[in-house]
């Protein structure tokens, strides 16, 4: 692991330099990531106010904090790799990556973290601004704050491995937009992005427990809100580790199969 340090340092440096070249594009991307949770925030806040200040155990302030936290967690864990791979394969850029003596996932991880690091300078103040504007009050518990860091890292890694693996479908067909869209729609319901999962019917909640999406987004958010018991925290971390390991195995399998296909059909 230590051997990768200089390589990651090199990748970070490059990723930051490239991002600096695209400041406007970066801001537009950010705007896209902010508008969606902001929209849900406004809708649920209004619904809550009209329902007398509470819906399904969430008070108006809870909705505000939930969606601001969701915006942060979603930003910290999102990837764009599923859209990028098709372009890479079509343009022959993947061949260049294959000739390097390192697995291509490393440059993608570094690229992603580099972008997040840079955008934190906008996301941080924006979060405070939104909290002030919507008069959010939040009293975090020290242990949830401490647990949040590893939970967020696990959420990022599991999301990264799964989405990187799904991007590999581009080896079989370069028309994967429909698949990407399906993944996003399913994720919207089961990740808690659209609404806190406890507001959904029981069957959706049970499905969310089984699927990986909840552990990528809703779980870290609920932890921040103090809505997770220590026992649920351990179960959640167990689920994250399971999905991370499964994602890793899936990635290894699909990457090997994908490379074989790529190498058979013409790189």
């Amino acid at each position: 692991m230590f051997a990768y340090y200089p390589i990651y340092k090199g990748y970070f440096r490059t990723a930051l330099m490239v991002q600096f070249q695209y400041r406007i594009a970066m801001l537009i991307w950010l705007l896209g990531g902010i508008i969606e949770p902001l929209m849900y925030l406004v809708v649920w806040r209004t619904v809550s106010e009209q329902q007398g200040g509470s819906v399904g155990g969430y008070e108006t302030n809870d909705f505000v904090v939930y969606f601001i936290a969701m915006m942060m967690v979603s930003h910290a864990t999102f990837t764009w790799i599923m859209w990028e791979y098709v372009y890479r394969i079509r343009m022959g850029l993947f061949s260049v990556m294959l000739l390097k003596p390192i697995h291509p996932i490393h440059s993608d991880i570094a690229d992603n973290i580099g972008y997040k690091f840079l955008t934190l300078t906008v996301m941080g103040p924006l979060t405070l601004l939104l909290a002030w504007f919507f008069e959010a009050t939040w009293q975090p518990l020290p242990w949830t704050l401490a647990a949040f860091v590893p939970v967020l890292i696990l959420a990022f890694l599991m999301r990264f491995y799964w989405e990187w693996s799904l991007a590999m479908v581009a080896f079989w067909t370069t028309r994967i937009d429909a698949m990407n869209q399906a993944y996003i729609v399913v994720g919207l319901f089961f990740s808690g992005k659209l609404a806190p999962l406890s507001l959904f019917p029981e069957i959706v909640q049970r499905a969310a427990d089984i699927l990986p999406f909840r552990w990528m987004l809703a779980f870290p958010v609920e932890l921040l809100l103090g809505r997770i018991t220590p026992r649920e925290l351990l179960i959640g971390i167990g689920a994250q580790l399971f999905w991370l390991f499964a994602g890793y195995l899936f990635m290894q399998f699909i990457y090997r199969a994908g490379i074989k296909r790529y190498a058979a059909f013409g790189a």
Partner: peptide, 11 residues
């Protein structure tokens, strides 16, 4: 800077 990146990748 691409050269520098290659320095890291190829160690």
């Amino acid at each position: 800077d691409t050269f520098e990146l290659n320095r890291a990748v190829y160690r």
